[in-house]
Design a protein around this nucleic acid. Structure first.
Length: 232
DNA sequence: CCATTAAAGGATT
DNA sequence: AATCCTTTAATGG
């Protein structure tokens, strides 16, 4: 009855440990959504009518202050759920979600969240593990923002992104979606100029190769040293 | 050490 | 052509 095959989701984190019938049941209630690069999928404080699973693409999760200044809270990669407001006890979205590239997602109406949680304990467990993991990551970033120098923070995000979404090329590990200096600065609490200067310096040393909205990590271990060494 | 401001040039649409 | 992205330099906290 459904054109979606369970092989789409079977091995993804939100669904590990689930039986085929359960997967089929859940999948039958999903609809596929496309989001063009640059479009806002949902906005902060908007009613959370759907929760999502990203099948393909990359999504930026963004917080904005009263001044209109932005901070990138995280990137969502393929296989991750997002917009799961109910999992953190909300009925509105906690941030904005923007498609960093053309994206393909599955979506479920939030009103069936409670049913799914009740009927599929594995899904419930996986969901709170996801929430816990993200909380942990957020705390680590807070610690970093409070204690690490700009140089270390920038080195760190580049390493993390390369790890998360890196694609091997002849030159090195390519961060597999368009990312600007501005984006990096919004992740590290600095300015695009400082990011630009750091990246230029690292490029001169041959540690990275970069261009417009493009970063290739060439000498990962060198950046590791920058990221971990508090000393100059 | 890092932010801000300004200026200028290249890339993209 | 207009807009977006990056670089570089100067200045100041």
């Amino acid at each position: 009855m459904n054109r979606l095959d369970i092989s789409l989701i079977r091995d993804l984190p939100p669904f590990v440990g689930m039986e085929v019938v359960d997967l089929q049941n859940i999948l039958a209630q999903a609809t596929a959504h496309r989001h063009e690069k640059g479009t806002t999928i949902f906005s902060e404080s908007e009613k959370a009518n759907y929760f999502y699973l990203l099948l393909d693409g990359h999504i930026r999760v963004v917080k904005i202050n009263q001044n209109g200044e932005q901070m990138i809270a995280r990137y969502i990669s393929a296989g991750e759920s997002y917009g799961i407001a109910k999992a953190i006890g909300r009925d509105t979205y906690p941030a904005n979600a923007v498609a960093a590239v053309d994206c393909l997602s599955l979506a479920w109406p939030t009103k069936i969240w409670d049913d799914i949680i009740l009927q599929h304990p594995n899904f419930a467990t996986n969901s709170y593990q996801t929430v816990g993991k993200r909380l942990f990551e957020t705390q680590e970033r807070m610690l970093e923002l409070a204690t690490a120098k700009v140089e270390q923070r920038v080195a760190n995000v580049i390493l993390k992104l390369a790890n998360q979404t890196g694609k091997k090329t002849e030159e090195g590990i390519l961060i597999d979606f368009p990312i600007s200096r501005q984006d990096i600065s919004e992740m590290t609490g600095t300015t695009l100029h400082t990011v630009s200067r750091l990246m230029s310096a690292w490029e001169d040393k041959g540690w990275v190769k970069s261009g417009r909205q493009k970063i290739v990590l060439v000498e990962g271990h060198k950046l590791m040293l920058v990221a971990t060494n508090a000393a100059d």
